[in-house]
Nucleic acid binder design. Structure first.
Lengths: 137, 137, 137, 137
DNA sequence: GTGGTCTAGACCACT
DNA sequence: GTGGTCTAGACCACG
């Protein structure tokens, strides 16, 4: 499972992690029944406190996205809540809207933004998801 | 001054407001010497507690972006820290990168994203910035 | 860490505390990396509201004097802003100037003031810094 | 009447002015029956808002230090509260104590402080009290 | 346990 | 009216 946290983004770590797991479940990158890393593993991988991961898993379990099986680990729920993908896409649109708003304020033109996005799509396709914490700013 | 807060975004209100003021100062939408709304005014407009706004203004004052004059109001600093715009554009790129990452995970194609962005640019150009709180999700 | 606040002095608590921490950092009584009391601890010690302390720590953090680590505590910044000591000594001279002015108005002679100062230096050397709130007037 | 305010000292203007008038009354620099400047005059002299001066005069009148005579002006009270001088000297000692404390923290030796004070006494004797607002820092 | 956000409200300082 | 200080207390995020 690939998760990246950016301490500089101002979004609480706990939310960054939860969001990324939600997105991956919604898009079937993580499939029902998949085993996800243990609390300790993921904590080590992301260099965050295990309790933080624990809280995330607890929360997602309550949302019905994960299932915790005693002694076995944590899994993507078999019966994922429906409309997940639709929901995530809606949230994505809100994100996009915020970005475009910011672009306009900063005087970034649609063309510039399109170019930026193409470049990013390509660079991410080439060097796919890192697993380790990476400080961006 | 136009500020929009989105409670659902998970980003602390205080940061959303500060970010938007920073962006507007960096891009000269707010110009040095401009008076910005009083603490109470903005608090009423956004339906948040005045202390929250006070907090934001205080912080931006310490950053050198705003100036507070007792009994008179709060103003954009005459001597804005340099490189503001460059800094904000860097932060913008990080935002764009995160968005593209999310798009890829959700299986959104570059074309779809481009269309979405064009639509948003156009719709925002038509119905410019609202000032009132708006719940998105 | 020793801080004394004097409610009767008319100087806002928030400034009294900030000033004393600044002075102690400037003079190396507090050294880079030192952990200072938690918000709640200091609040209890000085019998003020935790938010007041939080406010002070926040401000000094923005000034680059302190560093806050979530869940860990608050520390003296590793890279203290330079010229701290020089700045504090300048401020000290302004304080001394005000005192001498007051002395002259009250008809206190230089000799009387010298004696008073010697006495105070000695008494403070003997009974060093108390930590608890103390009402002076 | 000579009053100096220092915006940089962090002491509220209103208190700086009141303190200086109190001190001057206590020390007989201002004598019972003396007429002091009108609200407008002093406000103009110190370049502060007249309301601020008004508040000071109101307060000192309540304390029994001043008397306002309708249509005539503001005067030092004939029957000054007793023990004024003693009170002010006590407050002065508290100031001196704070200064010595700060000196110790900053590593300023008694000798250095003595010299500083002598210099200040002399310089103030030579160029006596200015009347206009003066920014010190 | 730590710091951080946010609300609510009183009272003060200043124009 | 403006900003500023301070209290009180709830709840969140992080280790």
């Amino acid at each position: 499972m690939f998760v990246r946290i950016e301490p500089s983004s101002g979004i609480p770590i706990i939310r960054q992690i939860a969001d990324q797991i939600r997105t991956q479940c919604a898009s079937n990158v993580l499939k029902p029944g998949d085993r996800i890393p243990s609390v300790r593993e993921l904590a080590a991988q992301l260099a965050v406190n295990p309790n933080t991961i624990l809280h995330v898993y607890e929360r997602l379990t309550l949302e019905g996205i994960l299932e915790r099986r005693h002694g076995e680990g944590t899994f993507v729920a078999q019966a994922l809540p429906s409309n997940q993908l639709a929901q995530q896409k809606e949230l994505f649109e809100a994100d996009a809207r915020r970005l475009v708003e910011k672009a306009r304020t900063l005087g970034i033109t649609p063309d510039e933004l399109h170019n930026m996005i193409d470049t990013l799509f390509q660079s991410q396709a080439r060097q796919p998801r890192p697993t380790r914490k990476e400080t961006i700013r």
